[in-house]
Amino acid sequence: MKTNNHSEIGWHMILGAIVFLMLVPIVFALSNSFKTLQDAFNTIFEIIPSHPTLENYRHVFEKLPFVQITLNTFLIAASVTIFKTITSLFAAYSFVYFDYKGKQFFYFIMLSTMFIPFTVTMIPNYLMISKLGLRDCIWGVALPQFADVLGIFLLRQAMRGIPKALIEAARMEGIGSLKIMRDIILPLVRPSILTTGIIFFINSWNEYVWPVLILKSKENYTLSLALQMYISAEGGTEFTIAMAVSVITMIIPLALYLIFQRYIINTFAASGVKG
Protein backbone atom coordinates (compact mmCIF):
# COMPACT_ATOMS: atom_id res chain seq x y z
CA MET A 1 0.00 0.00 0.00
CA LYS A 2 2.77 2.34 1.05
CA THR A 3 4.65 1.86 -2.19
CA ASN A 4 1.43 2.60 -4.09
CA ASN A 5 0.94 5.82 -2.15
CA HIS A 6 4.52 6.89 -2.81
CA SER A 7 4.29 6.21 -6.50
CA GLU A 8 0.94 8.01 -6.61
CA ILE A 9 2.48 11.08 -4.95
CA GLY A 10 5.33 10.94 -7.46
CA TRP A 11 2.88 10.83 -10.38
CA HIS A 12 0.84 13.67 -8.94
CA MET A 13 3.96 15.80 -8.62
CA ILE A 14 4.93 15.16 -12.24
CA LEU A 15 1.40 15.83 -13.47
CA GLY A 16 1.21 18.94 -11.26
CA ALA A 17 4.42 20.25 -12.81
CA ILE A 18 3.05 19.66 -16.32
CA VAL A 19 -0.23 21.42 -15.46
CA PHE A 20 1.77 24.33 -14.01
CA LEU A 21 3.89 24.63 -17.16
CA MET A 22 0.77 24.61 -19.33
CA LEU A 23 -1.08 27.12 -17.17
CA VAL A 24 1.76 29.67 -16.90
CA PRO A 25 1.40 31.17 -20.41
CA ILE A 26 -2.41 31.28 -20.09
CA VAL A 27 -2.32 33.01 -16.71
CA PHE A 28 0.47 35.27 -18.00
CA ALA A 29 -1.63 36.31 -21.01
CA LEU A 30 -4.80 36.76 -18.95
CA SER A 31 -3.07 38.81 -16.28
CA ASN A 32 -1.13 41.06 -18.66
CA SER A 33 -4.17 41.68 -20.85
CA PHE A 34 -5.63 43.66 -17.93
CA LYS A 35 -2.48 45.79 -17.39
CA THR A 36 -1.31 48.97 -19.04
CA LEU A 37 1.87 48.66 -21.05
CA GLN A 38 3.73 50.61 -18.36
CA ASP A 39 2.47 48.35 -15.56
CA ALA A 40 3.23 45.28 -17.59
CA PHE A 41 6.88 46.23 -17.99
CA ASN A 42 7.23 47.08 -14.30
CA THR A 43 5.36 44.08 -12.86
CA ILE A 44 5.40 41.53 -15.66
CA PHE A 45 5.10 38.46 -13.36
CA GLU A 46 2.48 39.93 -11.03
CA ILE A 47 -0.54 37.64 -11.43
CA ILE A 48 -3.24 39.98 -10.15
CA PRO A 49 -2.79 43.44 -11.71
CA SER A 50 -2.54 46.25 -9.14
CA HIS A 51 -4.30 48.70 -11.56
CA PRO A 52 -6.54 46.51 -13.72
CA THR A 53 -7.73 48.10 -16.97
CA LEU A 54 -9.93 47.14 -19.93
CA GLU A 55 -8.02 49.57 -22.17
CA ASN A 56 -6.39 46.77 -24.21
CA TYR A 57 -9.74 45.12 -24.99
CA ARG A 58 -11.28 48.48 -25.90
CA HIS A 59 -8.37 49.17 -28.22
CA VAL A 60 -8.83 45.82 -29.96
CA PHE A 61 -12.55 46.36 -30.56
CA GLU A 62 -12.13 50.02 -31.61
CA LYS A 63 -9.09 49.82 -33.87
CA LEU A 64 -9.91 46.56 -35.60
CA PRO A 65 -13.16 45.08 -37.02
CA PHE A 66 -12.81 42.54 -34.27
CA VAL A 67 -16.34 41.16 -34.25
CA GLN A 68 -15.99 40.60 -38.00
CA ILE A 69 -12.59 38.95 -37.51
CA THR A 70 -13.97 36.63 -34.83
CA LEU A 71 -16.95 35.83 -37.02
CA ASN A 72 -14.62 35.12 -39.99
CA THR A 73 -12.56 32.75 -37.90
CA PHE A 74 -15.66 31.05 -36.57
CA LEU A 75 -17.23 30.70 -40.02
CA ILE A 76 -14.05 29.20 -41.47
CA ALA A 77 -13.51 26.84 -38.52
CA ALA A 78 -17.17 25.80 -38.33
CA SER A 79 -17.57 25.19 -42.08
CA VAL A 80 -14.26 23.32 -42.23
CA THR A 81 -15.30 21.20 -39.25
CA ILE A 82 -18.73 20.38 -40.67
CA PHE A 83 -17.59 19.60 -44.22
CA LYS A 84 -14.47 17.74 -43.14
CA THR A 85 -16.55 15.59 -40.77
CA ILE A 86 -19.14 14.84 -43.45
CA THR A 87 -16.55 13.95 -46.13
CA SER A 88 -14.55 11.92 -43.61
CA LEU A 89 -17.68 10.03 -42.52
CA PHE A 90 -18.68 9.07 -46.04
CA ALA A 91 -15.16 8.14 -47.07
CA ALA A 92 -14.61 6.09 -43.90
CA TYR A 93 -17.96 4.33 -44.40
CA SER A 94 -17.02 3.36 -47.93
CA PHE A 95 -13.60 2.11 -46.83
CA VAL A 96 -15.13 -0.02 -44.07
CA TYR A 97 -18.44 -1.29 -45.43
CA PHE A 98 -18.24 -1.37 -49.23
CA ASP A 99 -16.34 -3.98 -51.16
CA TYR A 100 -14.72 -2.79 -54.35
CA LYS A 101 -11.60 -3.53 -56.28
CA GLY A 102 -8.49 -1.70 -55.12
CA LYS A 103 -10.08 -0.56 -51.85
CA GLN A 104 -6.93 -1.19 -49.81
CA PHE A 105 -4.75 0.39 -52.49
CA PHE A 106 -6.83 3.58 -52.57
CA TYR A 107 -6.84 3.72 -48.81
CA PHE A 108 -3.07 3.47 -48.53
CA ILE A 109 -2.54 5.98 -51.35
CA MET A 110 -4.83 8.35 -49.50
CA LEU A 111 -3.16 7.66 -46.18
CA SER A 112 0.27 8.36 -47.67
CA THR A 113 -0.84 11.94 -48.48
CA MET A 114 -0.75 12.54 -44.73
CA PHE A 115 3.05 12.54 -45.04
CA ILE A 116 3.20 15.22 -47.74
CA PRO A 117 4.24 18.50 -46.08
CA PHE A 118 1.88 21.46 -46.30
CA THR A 119 4.55 23.52 -48.06
CA VAL A 120 4.41 21.14 -51.04
CA THR A 121 0.67 21.53 -51.60
CA MET A 122 0.61 25.21 -50.67
CA ILE A 123 1.49 26.63 -54.11
CA PRO A 124 -0.85 24.40 -56.20
CA ASN A 125 -3.66 25.14 -53.75
CA TYR A 126 -2.93 28.87 -53.95
CA LEU A 127 -3.02 28.78 -57.76
CA MET A 128 -6.29 26.87 -57.72
CA ILE A 129 -7.93 29.27 -55.26
CA SER A 130 -6.67 32.21 -57.36
CA LYS A 131 -8.23 30.74 -60.50
CA LEU A 132 -11.49 30.28 -58.65
CA GLY A 133 -11.34 33.97 -57.72
CA LEU A 134 -11.41 33.19 -54.02
CA ARG A 135 -8.29 35.15 -53.02
CA ASP A 136 -8.91 37.50 -50.09
CA CYS A 137 -12.10 35.64 -49.29
CA ILE A 138 -12.75 33.47 -46.23
CA TRP A 139 -14.11 30.63 -48.43
CA GLY A 140 -10.73 30.56 -50.15
CA VAL A 141 -9.25 29.70 -46.76
CA ALA A 142 -11.90 27.10 -46.00
CA LEU A 143 -12.32 25.30 -49.35
CA PRO A 144 -9.03 23.33 -49.55
CA GLN A 145 -9.65 22.02 -46.04
CA PHE A 146 -13.01 20.39 -46.72
CA ALA A 147 -11.49 16.90 -46.96
CA ASP A 148 -8.92 15.44 -44.61
CA VAL A 149 -7.03 12.18 -44.37
CA LEU A 150 -6.71 12.31 -40.59
CA GLY A 151 -10.49 12.44 -40.19
CA ILE A 152 -10.99 9.53 -42.58
CA PHE A 153 -8.36 7.54 -40.72
CA LEU A 154 -9.83 8.25 -37.26
CA LEU A 155 -13.43 7.59 -38.27
CA ARG A 156 -12.47 4.46 -40.20
CA GLN A 157 -10.84 3.13 -37.05
CA ALA A 158 -13.97 3.97 -35.04
CA MET A 159 -16.24 2.26 -37.58
CA ARG A 160 -14.07 -0.83 -37.67
CA GLY A 161 -14.85 -1.19 -33.97
CA ILE A 162 -18.57 -1.60 -34.77
CA PRO A 163 -19.42 -5.29 -35.23
CA LYS A 164 -20.16 -6.01 -38.89
CA ALA A 165 -23.16 -8.08 -37.81
CA LEU A 166 -24.95 -4.86 -36.77
CA ILE A 167 -24.72 -3.50 -40.29
CA GLU A 168 -25.71 -6.87 -41.71
CA ALA A 169 -28.70 -7.00 -39.36
CA ALA A 170 -29.80 -3.60 -40.67
CA ARG A 171 -29.23 -4.67 -44.27
CA MET A 172 -31.36 -7.76 -43.64
CA GLU A 173 -34.16 -5.39 -42.67
CA GLY A 174 -33.84 -3.84 -46.11
CA ILE A 175 -32.32 -0.60 -44.83
CA GLY A 176 -30.22 1.41 -47.31
CA SER A 177 -26.68 2.69 -46.72
CA LEU A 178 -27.67 6.28 -45.94
CA LYS A 179 -30.23 5.21 -43.37
CA ILE A 180 -27.74 2.75 -41.85
CA MET A 181 -25.28 5.63 -41.59
CA ARG A 182 -27.88 7.85 -39.90
CA ASP A 183 -29.52 5.30 -37.60
CA ILE A 184 -26.70 2.92 -36.71
CA ILE A 185 -23.26 4.35 -37.49
CA LEU A 186 -23.73 7.96 -36.39
CA PRO A 187 -25.02 7.20 -32.89
CA LEU A 188 -22.31 4.61 -32.35
CA VAL A 189 -19.37 6.73 -33.51
CA ARG A 190 -20.70 9.97 -32.03
CA PRO A 191 -17.89 10.33 -29.47
CA SER A 192 -15.30 9.87 -32.24
CA ILE A 193 -17.08 12.38 -34.46
CA LEU A 194 -17.05 14.93 -31.64
CA THR A 195 -13.38 14.32 -30.94
CA THR A 196 -12.34 14.62 -34.57
CA GLY A 197 -14.66 17.62 -34.89
CA ILE A 198 -12.92 19.37 -32.00
CA ILE A 199 -9.51 18.58 -33.49
CA PHE A 200 -10.63 19.96 -36.87
CA PHE A 201 -12.09 23.07 -35.28
CA ILE A 202 -9.03 23.90 -33.19
CA ASN A 203 -6.62 23.21 -36.07
CA SER A 204 -8.61 25.48 -38.35
CA TRP A 205 -9.04 28.12 -35.62
CA ASN A 206 -5.27 28.27 -35.09
CA GLU A 207 -4.38 28.13 -38.79
CA TYR A 208 -1.90 30.85 -39.72
CA VAL A 209 0.17 30.16 -42.85
CA TRP A 210 -2.70 29.43 -45.25
CA PRO A 211 -4.86 32.44 -44.21
CA VAL A 212 -1.85 34.73 -44.40
CA LEU A 213 -1.37 33.67 -48.04
CA ILE A 214 -5.00 34.08 -49.03
CA LEU A 215 -6.33 36.98 -46.96
CA LYS A 216 -5.25 40.57 -47.60
CA SER A 217 -7.83 43.01 -46.21
CA LYS A 218 -8.30 43.46 -42.48
CA GLU A 219 -12.06 42.83 -42.56
CA ASN A 220 -11.35 39.34 -43.91
CA TYR A 221 -8.67 38.57 -41.33
CA THR A 222 -8.82 35.66 -38.93
CA LEU A 223 -7.87 35.89 -35.26
CA SER A 224 -4.40 34.43 -35.79
CA LEU A 225 -3.66 37.15 -38.37
CA ALA A 226 -4.99 39.83 -36.02
CA LEU A 227 -2.74 38.49 -33.29
CA GLN A 228 0.24 38.57 -35.62
CA MET A 229 -0.29 42.31 -36.11
CA TYR A 230 0.73 42.90 -32.50
CA ILE A 231 3.53 40.44 -32.04
CA SER A 232 5.46 40.80 -35.28
CA ALA A 233 8.06 43.36 -36.16
CA GLU A 234 5.36 45.59 -37.72
CA GLY A 235 3.17 45.16 -34.67
CA GLY A 236 5.69 46.87 -32.47
CA THR A 237 5.78 46.45 -28.74
CA GLU A 238 2.12 46.64 -27.81
CA PHE A 239 2.30 43.28 -26.17
CA THR A 240 -0.57 43.88 -23.65
CA ILE A 241 -2.91 44.30 -26.64
CA ALA A 242 -1.43 41.12 -28.10
CA MET A 243 -2.28 39.40 -24.80
CA ALA A 244 -5.87 40.68 -24.99
CA VAL A 245 -6.17 39.27 -28.55
CA SER A 246 -4.70 35.98 -27.30
CA VAL A 247 -7.29 35.76 -24.54
CA ILE A 248 -10.15 36.40 -26.99
CA THR A 249 -8.66 33.87 -29.42
CA MET A 250 -8.69 31.08 -26.87
CA ILE A 251 -12.14 31.75 -25.39
CA ILE A 252 -14.21 30.02 -28.11
CA PRO A 253 -12.16 26.79 -28.38
CA LEU A 254 -12.07 26.66 -24.58
CA ALA A 255 -15.84 27.06 -24.37
CA LEU A 256 -16.30 24.32 -26.97
CA TYR A 257 -14.02 22.05 -25.02
CA LEU A 258 -15.98 22.67 -21.82
CA ILE A 259 -19.25 21.85 -23.58
CA PHE A 260 -17.98 18.64 -25.19
CA GLN A 261 -15.40 17.56 -22.63
CA ARG A 262 -17.57 14.67 -21.40
CA TYR A 263 -17.53 13.06 -24.86
CA ILE A 264 -13.86 13.78 -25.47
CA ILE A 265 -12.81 12.20 -22.21
CA ASN A 266 -15.14 9.25 -22.91
CA THR A 267 -13.58 8.69 -26.32
CA PHE A 268 -10.03 8.77 -25.07
CA ALA A 269 -10.98 6.51 -22.13
CA ALA A 270 -12.73 4.06 -24.49
CA SER A 271 -9.74 3.92 -26.80
CA GLY A 272 -7.69 2.99 -23.75
CA VAL A 273 -9.75 -0.01 -22.66
CA LYS A 274 -10.69 -1.40 -26.03
CA GLY A 275 -9.58 -4.79 -27.25
Binding site: P163, A165, E168, A169, A170, M172, G174
Partner: peptide
Protein backbone atom coordinates in the same frame (compact mmCIF):
# COMPACT_ATOMS: atom_id res chain seq x y z
CA UNK B 1 -30.27 -7.94 -52.32
CA UNK B 2 -30.58 -9.38 -48.82
CA UNK B 3 -33.28 -6.91 -47.83
CA UNK B 4 -35.48 -8.03 -50.74
CA UNK B 5 -35.39 -11.76 -50.03
CA UNK B 6 -38.00 -11.77 -47.29
CA UNK B 7 -35.60 -13.39 -44.84
CA UNK B 8 -35.18 -12.92 -41.08
CA UNK B 9 -31.95 -13.81 -39.38
CA UNK B 10 -30.75 -14.32 -35.83
CA UNK B 11 -27.02 -13.73 -35.55
CA UNK B 12 -24.63 -15.64 -33.32
CA UNK B 13 -23.80 -12.55 -31.25
CA UNK B 14 -27.43 -11.37 -31.63
CA UNK B 15 -26.35 -8.11 -33.36
CA UNK B 16 -28.69 -5.98 -31.28
CA UNK B 17 -28.31 -2.24 -31.83
Amino acid sequence: ACGDRGVSMVFQNYALF
